[in-house]
Design a protein around this nucleic acid. Sequence first.
DNA 1: TTTAGTAATTTAACGTTGTTAAAATTTTTG
DNA 2: CAAAAATTTTAACAACGTTAAATTACTAAA
Lengths: 213, 213
Amino acid sequence: MTENRQSRREAVSERKRELILDAARQVFAEEGLDGASLRAIAVRAGYTPAALYFHFDSKEAMYAEVLQTSLESLGAEVGSAVSHASSPHQKLKAAAMSFFQFYAANPRDLDLGFYLFRGGMKPAGLGQDRDLRLNAALEAALHPIAEAAVELGASRQQGNLLMVDCFAHAAGLLLLLHTGRIRMFGASAPELMETYVDSRVEQLGQGLRHADN
Amino acid sequence: MTENRQSRREAVSERKRELILDAARQVFAEEGLDGASLRAIAVRAGYTPAALYFHFDSKEAMYAEVLQTSLESLGAEVGSAVSHASSPHQKLKAAAMSFFQFYAANPRDLDLGFYLFRGGMKPAGLGQDRDLRLNAALEAALHPIAEAAVELGASRQQGNLLMVDCFAHAAGLLLLLHTGRIRMFGASAPELMETYVDSRVEQLGQGLRHADN
DNA sequence: TTTAGTAATTTAACGTTGTTAAAATTTTTG
DNA sequence: CAAAAATTTTAACAACGTTAAATTACTAAA
């Protein structure tokens, strides 16, 4: 009974946290980390700015929490896509494509992911454990790429390099597409996605076959 | 004579502008656009914050000017590297590599370039002409890649796609390297640079030969 | 059901940010 | 040397993230 009462209270508090996080998710995605104001988040959640500090340590901590769930849903989508593929080569293709497609379909999550590319999120102001959890979530999402590469005959290290390289390539491409800056060069999103999939993923397989001799 | 006096005045004013820009370059590179404070720039240049508004319209305008010269020196380096190469294939390789190496050797310029990846620099607050000049500088820097691809038998559009794709790939890789976040995956900078050059640039040439039939 | 205690929220304030207007200063011109 | 123009400073504004103290809402015990 005592436990029930306690867990009820905690459940209510948890519900309020989630409510605030929902508001934060929107504002962060729309305005970015620096652009989003704590007051805007508070208003959208029906709170006063200072009230957020009862539930969260800082603005960065809120951002980290939002980003964490974003990376986890990315990982879920990649894992699902890979599980539906049969051959290792198709797994590799599916992983690379689903990663790309996730952000193409969920541009808000791309906005959130921006911050992973910056030095801004320092473990000092964030808590090193939270930083490690973020990295773990990202690595989990990317892992199927390395796994598929290993199945195709690459070494563990080669697989990791491919994974990172592939991630960087797709991420850079997505960032360019998303900011719209790339239209100046006369390239469209579908064209670039095709370029990415065809001239990159296909060649990854070829490169691997060359590498393992 | 009248012209002489005028140009002397303008030259002095220009010198002060450059002095401020030098300070801004440092602070922006160290702290990023959002992190850099106008007061820090002013102090380093020996001014009061408000004085900067006589020489520049806004903080973003200062940033754009700093970024502009960064992109121009990138373009100069890429152009120089390409001019020393003989065959089209070597030109392509030299262009892709020099672009990569420029940012590896000048991490401060990478810091500056970050902002090109974000939606933050809106033409509204910046002046569309300045935005166009920034894009022109970037395109000029990348153009040798497309040019070399065309010499290798690609269409104009294929060349542009390769150029953008190559840029995105290198940029994403550099961002990951620079934030240090990539060490978690057990990959080092030299390894990734080798991966980029060998498995990407080489294959670009192969892909082109396949494409032009 | 009232009371004591704790959890949750607000109010008010601090220092810092980019930016602006007006005053003060330096520099050039007639 | 005086008038005019160019440059810099001082003072202030609203908005930001954050904190401490005061206040309200809620839960537990008597």
